[in-house]
Design a protein around this nucleic acid. Structure first.
Lengths: 233, 233
DNA sequence: ACACGCCGAGGACAAATGTCCTTCCCAAAT
DNA sequence: ATTTGGGAAGGACATTTGTCCTCGGCGTGT
């Protein structure tokens, strides 16, 4: 179902939009392709061999990991611009996490084969990667500290805020469907049951409100007060 | 109390030992210095401006973060070879975490000033950094999943194992002092009280034993069984 | 309209974890 | 040797979080 094209125009438009034009060596540019994934499709699967570096340029993806026991844990949701497969490219191992398209998604794909040939010694490109990976590290690092240091209440408030005024879903401002909430619970690392309890609290305090099919954030400032300065991502 | 020298012999011996000789551009080599920190000394402090990249070549360090509320969380212990200040170098921000010498410590220090001048466009060096940072990312990523997916019991068992047969402290094989245990609790993100409870369990099951000033790991395989495949770091 | 079935919210209880406090042991000081 | 202080272990209780189950609403098919 994934559709791969070589729409050079489109690809370069994306590169310009996200200002990564200059990070891509000229020799590499002919080998970029544009990949469109449908909603729910898998972009890559944990444990399989890695071979393509993707740049997310449109849509929203979900990244999660599956433990040996089969438990699944959502690690993050990402919007453009984001890189997938960078870690695997550098380390040379199998794919670490599963990535799934939440909406329909456009990605620029670059085969490792061409990367090694045309980009592996290019300082601009390496600096670009380095910037990306250090950013990812910082985000992970914050996540980890945040999870260990703060109670569910704060983490949930923080998460609600992060999706509430995330420009990408302007239509649903502050609105979360039930399935979103389930994902939130998973991301936060707490049972859905307990998330509901905390949500009950939030509603009682007038911070949120329940609707037929989810919740709405009513009092953004109230939630902000809970998280003070610590924001997810 | 930190002592900085230019013992070229020693520095190059270290570089060779850890096979990072080839990652350092020749022009940069004259600007390396050897820094010795005493036990308990701070190598760098969260929030201060960053200026030096350090390579840990001897001794053991502790990395921790302090939250806005003043709570402190141990992120990791590290032995050679490890890089400190890489993220800050790439991102250009202040120091992210506090790093403290657990034992007396030798580090090779390189000023950002010289790095920018002699290494910033060097593919070998950039690849070296990239390798380091992706590794760090993987470790963080595992930590995060591990913490969210497994109960304290498993995390503690895993941690005990990781320090038990970590060659660096061969003399204390499987022996943990009380203060080590406090650190362990902090690292795992659990109260010391609770860690003691779990430890009580372990002792009851014959996995560990209490001594006058700490515990000893008795049954390594038993602990391994608990953690199955998931190992800290 | 009615019956059926699914799914989500919340109740009830159990397990995990945190907080506070008491007790006890050991080491240093007198 | 006695005292004293600090620190560590464990008891008691509170809070958080998980598991399991029930109930009710809503959509679907007839």
């Amino acid at each position: 179902m994934m559709k791969e094209t070589r729409d050079t125009e489109q690809i370069h438009a994306y590169l310009r939009t996200f200002r990564i034009d200059s990070a891509i060596p000229e020799d590499l540019k002919p080998h970029l392709s544009l990949c469109r994934f449908g909603q729910g499709e898998f972009i890559c699967t944990q444990g399989e061999p890695a071979g393509v570096l993707y740049i997310l340029v449109k849509g929203k993806i979900k990244i999660y990991t599956t433990s040996a026991e089969g438990k699944t844990l959502i690690l993050s949701f990402k919007s453009p611009v984001e890189i997938i497969g960078d870690i695997e490219y550098v380390q040379g191992g199998d794919i670490i996490n599963t990535v799934e398209a939440v909406t329909s998604v456009d990605m620029i794909g670059i085969s490792y084969r061409w990367l090694r040939k045309f980009a592996n010694d290019d300082p601009k490109f390496l600096q670009f990667l380095l910037d990306i990976v250090t950013r990812k590290f910082l985000i992970k690092s914050n996540d980890l500290s945040f999870n260990l240091m703060y109670p569910v209440e704060v983490r949930l408030a923080s998460y609600l805020l992060s999706v509430c005024f995330d420009g990408t879903d302007a239509l649903l401002q502050g609105r979360l469907s039930t399935s979103d909430l389930k994902d939130a619970a998973n991301l936060i690392g707490v049972s859905y049951r307990h998330l509901n309890r905390v949500l009950y609290q939030f509603c009682a305090e007038g911070l949120t409100e329940r609707t037929k099919d989810g919740i709405i954030v009513i009092n953004r400032d109230g939630l902000t007060a809970l998280t003070s300065h610590n924001i997810y991502e």
